[in-house]
Amino acid sequence: MVESNNLTFSYNTDTVFAYPDFYCTADRPLLIRGRSGSGKTTLLHILAGILRPSGGKVIINDVNPAALSAAQLDKFRGRNIGIVYQRAHFMAALSVFDNILLSQYFSGQRPDHPQAKRIADRLNIGHLLKKNPAQLSQGEQQRVSIARALLPGPKLLLADEPTSSLDDDNCDSVLHLLKEQSVLSRSALIIVTHDQRVNQHFSNAIRLI
């Protein structure tokens, strides 16, 4: 479970973001909405432990990531947080399967090949594992990045604009997938987006202004 408390972040004195408090569990995914420039991505990076907040705190599974050292934070992020980006990015030189395994490798776990295959099958990309990421369609790439984010068994799954470049059908199926998979993996899910189509899928939502 994830909760925030008086969270603020400032890049400089002019741009200060103050975030409303929120709360999220595996059963209750959270939607964070806001137009561009409202600090969505910044918030996502704070949640991911990529940025440290200027004030307030986030607690993820009883841990305050901001209190960790840089090396501990890297490790914490690798083990506990999976991120799905707006546009899927991969190591172009590696195969789809290796790209999925990377998340475990970089988080310091032993790559678990059977588990990676299981997750890939769950996401319907089991037949694409030998391909090069660039050969896949956007929807397929999105699913590969979800598989990659889920493989280390994260406590928190973050999705940054996962639907903005998809059509309505794909938008629905990706949201469905994210919710379903996070439940299966028992991860808390937070989606950050400006996409209006997502609203109807979530009861737990906050809006950034």
């Binding site: 690798g78 083990r79 990015h89 190591m91 970089f106 988080s107 990659r148």
Partner: peptide, 11 residues
């Protein structure tokens, strides 16, 4: 790619 690796926990 490198940023991605960092986000996946690489030091």
């Amino acid at each position: 790619e490198l940023a991605l690796a960092r986000s996946m926990g690489s030091s």
